[in-house]
């Protein structure tokens, strides 16, 4: 049901749109970094690093919008949770953006050092990470609590794949595989993807808070 104040409604949906837009940006940054790595395209990696500025600005914009709503409309109940969660979610998205930059930087180094067979090994993890982030974003834009719970479940797969991957890569390094530095960078990329999964879980928890007012973090 709509608010009596139309401005209030407009501002709330504008806030939501901003968060969704930022989510799209963060997801795109991650995909671009991965694509750069897989297609040997250093330019794409540089793009990601440059475009992170946009994501940071978007975070500031969302903070402003959220604060203005708190200030002007004194939201309560689900509206209040929506605003608080939006601000939380944009923190997570900003860090997803940072991880995308990390991935891009690592990818650049790997590409500089020459082609590496083991890069293919992270593909399953990339697939899962993409699924979990876009799942979290869909759950947010559709206010879908069930999907949010699914996202939280998905993180287990991400963790598992990451663990297995980093173990096998470590084994290769200790087995004398070369170049060590590039392999280490692949491990770091894998870790970034795992962290992105955790951040998607944070987002999903915020969505559950919006819909049910339950704080399920750290439980």
């Amino acid at each position: 049901m709509a608010h009596i104040l139309k401005n209030y409604d407009d501002d709330l949906s504008a806030l939501k749109d901003s968060v969704v837009e930022m989510g799209t940006q963060a997801l795109a940054a991650m995909e671009k970094a991965i694509k750069g790595l897989s297609t040997n395209d250093v330019e794409l990696c540089y793009d990601v690093i440059d475009e992170d500025e946009r994501i940071d600005q978007q975070e500031k914009k969302i903070d402003e919008q959220g604060m203005s709503i708190l200030l002007r409309f004194n939201p309560v109940a689900s509206d209040l949770r929506h605003v608080l969660s939006s601000i939380n979610i944009c923190r997570s998205l900003e860090r997803i953006g940072d991880h995308a930059v990390n991935i891009a930087k690592r990818a650049r180094k790997i590409l500089k050092a020459g082609e590496l067979e083991e890069v293919r090994l992270i593909d399953p993890l990339v697939l899962e990470a993409r699924k979990i982030v876009s799942g979290a974003l869909t759950a947010f834009s559709d206010v879908d609590e069930q999907l949010a719970h699914k996202v939280i479940e998905m993180d287990r797969a991400v963790d598992k794949i990451h663990k297995a991957l980093s173990k096998s890569l470590s084994n290769k390094i200790s087995g004398g595989a070369q170049p060590t530095e590039s392999l280490l960078n692949v491990i770091f990329i894998s870790r970034s993807l795992e962290r992105i999964g955790d951040l998607a879980v944070n987002i999903a928890e915020d969505i559950v808070f919006i819909t049910s007012a339950e704080d399920i973090r750290h439980t």
């Binding site: 049901m1 009596i4 104040l5 309560v76 109940a77 509206d79 007012a213």
Partner: peptide
């Protein structure tokens, strides 16, 4: 009542909806 009312009418009233 103001954080998470269990009845929709209450929520609508406290959050200023029709």
């Amino acid at each position: 009542i103001f954080g998470n009312p269990s009845i929709k009418q209450t929520e609508d009233y406290v959050s200023g909806r029709f």
